Computed example of a mutant assay.
Amino acid sequence: MNVWIVLLAAVSSFVVGGLWYSPVLFGKVWNAENGGQPATGHPAKVFGVSFGFSLLAAFAFAYLVGPSPTLESSVKLGALVGIGLVAASFGINYQFAQRSFKLWMIDGGYHAMQFLLFGAVFGVLG
């Protein structure tokens, strides 16, 4: 496992997440779907913990994809994990919490994109 590739994958998903949840893309809708109240908590803690989870996800993906994956197999695995495992699991939770389909599309879509991005990073550099 190449730790530098794992770190790059984590950073890339963190950057995409920043854009995804910004007012430029889905931030305003996401905030409205969550009751219109901005997130609370110290920004350094929020971003630090979020990056830690991105790093954990990148390490787990590196383990799953194995050494020297092809771009095709790595992106397919990213789609399977992001859509079939993470977004689907969010869907179950959101259904029971009676959260909106729109919110699920934003959050599930981000994680689908996150793992597709992991697949691209590992497929190109791995």
Rank of each mutant, 00 (worst) to 15 (best):
F59N: 03
F59P: 00
F59W: 15
A60L: 15
A60P: 00
A62P: 00
Y63M: 12
L64E: 03
V65Q: 07
V65F: 07
V65M: 08
P67G: 04
P69E: 04
T70F: 06
T70Q: 05
L71G: 14
V75D: 11
K76D: 01
K76C: 03
G78M: 11
L80W: 11
L80I: 10
L80R: 09
V81Y: 06
V81Q: 07
G82P: 10
I83D: 01
G84E: 06
G84A: 05
L85K: 07
V86T: 07
A87G: 05
S89C: 03
S89H: 09
S89E: 03
F90N: 08
F90G: 03
F90P: 01
F90E: 08
G91L: 04
G91N: 02
I92E: 03
N93H: 11
Y94P: 02
Y94L: 07
Q95Y: 15
F96L: 12
F96D: 00
A97C: 02
A97M: 14
Q98D: 01
Q98W: 03
R99G: 00
S100D: 00
F101P: 00
W104H: 09
M105K: 11
M105D: 01
D107E: 14
D107T: 13
G108T: 12
G109F: 01
G109V: 00
Y110H: 14
H111I: 06
H111F: 15
H111A: 09
